Simulated assay, not measured.
Amino acid sequence: MVAEVQPGLMTNDSRCGINFSEGRWPLVFIYSVVFTLALVAHLLTLGPIIQQVRSHNILGVYLLNLSLSDLLYTLTVPLWIHYYYNNHTWHMGRHVCHIAGFIYYSNTYISIFMLCFISLDRCLAVSFPLWAKAFRKPRYGWYISAFVILGVMGVHLPVALVNSNNNTLVNGSSEMKDCYDSYPLSTLVAKFNYIRITFGFLVPLALLIFCNFQVFKGVRKSSSIQDKSKRKVKLLSIWVIVIFAFCFAPYHIILFLRTIMSSLHPGSCDFDRHVHHLFSFSLAMSSLNSVADPFLYVFSSNCVREDLTEISRSFCAHLGHRWPPHSSSKLSIRQLSTRVVTSWTALDKI
């Protein structure tokens, strides 16, 4: 005898009756762009970041850990492209799914916390330069980075283990209907969502707003900082805020609404069906932080933008393209790295 299902309620096997084939191409496109741009950007900036670490710059320590986390996630993006192309069906085995999902969610919150500590470091450097000098040492950067990475992974590991028992296999094979998707949300996942929304987004957001407000106020009042340096510091702060607002906020807002509705109406699929495509799109947009992070600080310097322009001109000149007469100069990647390090060192002294 088949059990009756109340209106608006569906079993997890049905995945709320959502048509996952709709909207798959925009998702495939976004993740493809993320993979291409993020991989190139991180490979180009990893060298200068390592040079910053060698010069005992605490900003370089934060950037290196952020870059490695982003790069690790970027290498898993092709798996997600394949997943969305196949209408949210996972073909690569249960264990690969859990590893890829664990890396994705860990990277999201590692990025959030690293951006917060970078903003806090800038805030201390601008507001309390003499007092903060004793604490802005590379070893403290390594301690904080290790605390963030191990803390985030430690929190997500139990969730990954629980999630491993909730995936639905297709015909007993390694093919799964979903990977880190939950339609409707389970009670356990909903409880965990409240924790990560509060401590993984709202608290860091409040800290970020406070720190950058202090940075803007300190830079505006300072008479010892040159206008060009002020512009760099402001641009850095603005970019951090943009990443939070554009990459992380939409996903967490919709996740919060889904969690509330799941708590008020356990097992209901109505709200999930209405916001599924928007939620998937916000999840894809959150991955764009891997593209934005490498450019966050490098392109806050005018000379870096000019140097990259010269590199592109020189490269195209070798391919036989004609450029205007004033672009005949050529710049090597090594020279670019040196200028990037010089720009970052100057920024770190502020």
Rank of each mutant, 00 (worst) to 15 (best):
K330C: 11
V215C: 11
S119N: 12
K221E: 14
L308P: 00
L71N: 00
L257Y: 12
I112K: 00
L115R: 01
N212H: 06
D272F: 13
W142K: 04
F147S: 09
L188N: 04
N166Y: 08
N19D: 15
L161T: 10
H277P: 01
Q335H: 12
F216T: 02
R305D: 03
A284P: 03
V40G: 06
L283C: 08
A132N: 14
G47F: 12
H321E: 08
V159S: 02
D293Y: 03
E22A: 11
H318T: 14
Y31W: 10
I103G: 01
P204Y: 07
F135A: 14
V304S: 13
V148N: 05
C97K: 08
R54C: 11
S69N: 07
F113Y: 14
N289L: 07
W142G: 00
N107E: 00
I81H: 07
G60F: 07
W25Y: 14
P26M: 08
F281Y: 10
L288G: 00
F192R: 05
Q335I: 03
S337R: 14
Y297H: 05
I333P: 02
V2S: 12
M1H: 08
R24P: 03
H42T: 10
L264N: 04
F135G: 05
L347N: 04
S290C: 14
L46K: 03
H252A: 01
S164Q: 09
H252F: 13
R15I: 01
I209K: 07
V148F: 01
D272H: 15
V96F: 02
Y105H: 12
P48T: 07
F210S: 09
A317M: 02
P294W: 08
P294M: 06
K232C: 10
V96E: 00
L44D: 06
N166E: 15
S224N: 13
K330R: 13
H265C: 04
S290N: 14
P48M: 03
S327C: 15
I99E: 04
V291P: 07
R15M: 15
K133P: 02
P26I: 09
F216Y: 13
G154R: 05
S263I: 00
D348M: 06
T309W: 08
F128K: 14
L68R: 07
P250K: 05
F271M: 11
L169H: 11
G218I: 03
V159K: 03
